[in-house]
Design a protein around this nucleic acid. Structure first.
Length: 307
DNA sequence: AATTTGCCCAACCGCAGTACG
DNA sequence: TCGTACTGCGGTTGGGCAAAT
């Protein structure tokens, strides 16, 4: 009789040598060795056979998962870089929860890892949105920021030379709009309001477990387009992407208690019209976007509003 | 020092698509 | 064509750990 035991109580399984009961829970070093050695000699695939022939009391699915998420040599460890975070954000806005597809664009990162990463940000966002003061502004402002992001991308794609966001600078008010000046985004009343809102949220949340200022909306960073160099992302290291989990409205209500979030009323209050097709660039200021783009997010937003 | 809370991550589950006999 | 097995994917769970209380 052998006793297989891990720190997880659920994975304590007693079995005799002839016992065929499948093991569950965390993998032991011995199991990792068995699987790794087998795949090194025979290759991947036919996971049920792998499990049997490697002498593992695991399902094929379990073996596959362990290999792909942990044992595979090119699996990258450690925190996601700012570039990776931004790429995930962008790809998620394009593809939604297609984690495996997103993971393909991030060499060495697994879909599980990306999914976990995103989920933690979703949770942060859910709590953020639940905050009474955020309820009337946070989501809408964030959504507008997201739309500006996309507009900037589209504008860059359509006219890269004219849209050199790094080189151009639009004069901005000395306060209120300072968050947006570095990317030449015009400080609309909404953005100024947002800025004020950020300042308010500092005092409201910094002394508790709620989202800190570093997790609140900062369009300066959100609007950073893809394709920027590494050093241009340095600031991102100090800015968690928590707020970027704009899909927070997809969160299951029973889990995140989003019942109280009256988005429809919020939209009405903010005169945010949805959906608006297209992305237009102001003639007088090429860097100012008529800020609504038709996006998947809009579709989801409508779905959310229909809940 | 003890307890609670929140975050992170590994692993499991269920489902859908595909391959194959 | 149908049934079964296998594979891959996205959603979910629960334990470990550190920070907060």
């Amino acid at each position: 009789m052998r006793l297989a035991m891990s720190s997880s109580s659920k994975s304590i399984i007693c079995y005799s040598e002839e016992d065929t009961e499948l093991r569950r829970g965390p993998w032991s070093i011995e199991e990792d060795d068995l699987l790794g050695n087998y795949i090194a000699n025979h290759g991947e695939g036919r996971w049920n056979l792998v499990a049997i022939r490697a002498g593992l009391r695991r399902t094929g699915k379990s073996c596959r998962l362990r290999w792909l998420n942990y044992l595979k040599p090119d699996v990258k460890r450690g925190n996601l870089t700012s570039e990776e975070q931004l790429l995930i954000f962008e790809l998620h806005s394009k593809w939604g929860n297609r984690w495996s597809k997103i993971a393909q664009q991030l060499p060495g990162r697994t879909d599980n890892e990306i999914k976990n990463y995103w989920r933690t940000r979703i949770q942060k966002q859910a709590r953020y949105m639940k905050s009474e003061t955020q309820r009337t502004t946070g989501f809408v402002e964030f959504f507008k920021g997201l739309q500006m992001t996309r507009c900037l991308h589209k504008a860059q794609e359509s006219s890269p030379s004219a849209m050199s966001l790094q080189d151009q600078e639009i004069p901005m008010p000395s306060d209120g709009g300072s968050h947006y000046s570095s990317f030449g985004i015009e400080a609309t009343p909404e953005t100024q309001h947002l800025n004020q809102h950020e300042q308010n949220s500092d005092s409201e949340h910094n002394n508790g477990s709620s989202i800190s200022n570093s997790e609140s909306v900062n369009i300066q960073y959100m609007t950073k387009p893809l394709g920027c160099t590494t050093n241009q992302f340095q600031a991102l290291d100090n800015y968690d992407f928590g707020i970027c989990s704009y899909d927070g409205y997809n969160i299951e209500k029973s889990v995140y208690d989003m019942d109280s979030f009256n988005l429809a009323a919020t939209m009405d209050a903010q005169n945010l019209e949805l959906p608006v097709i297209g992305c237009q660039i102001s003639e007088t200021n090429p860097l100012y976007m008529e800020s609504e783009c038709s996006t998947r997010s809009n579709d989801e937003l409508w779905q959310f509003m229909n809940i």
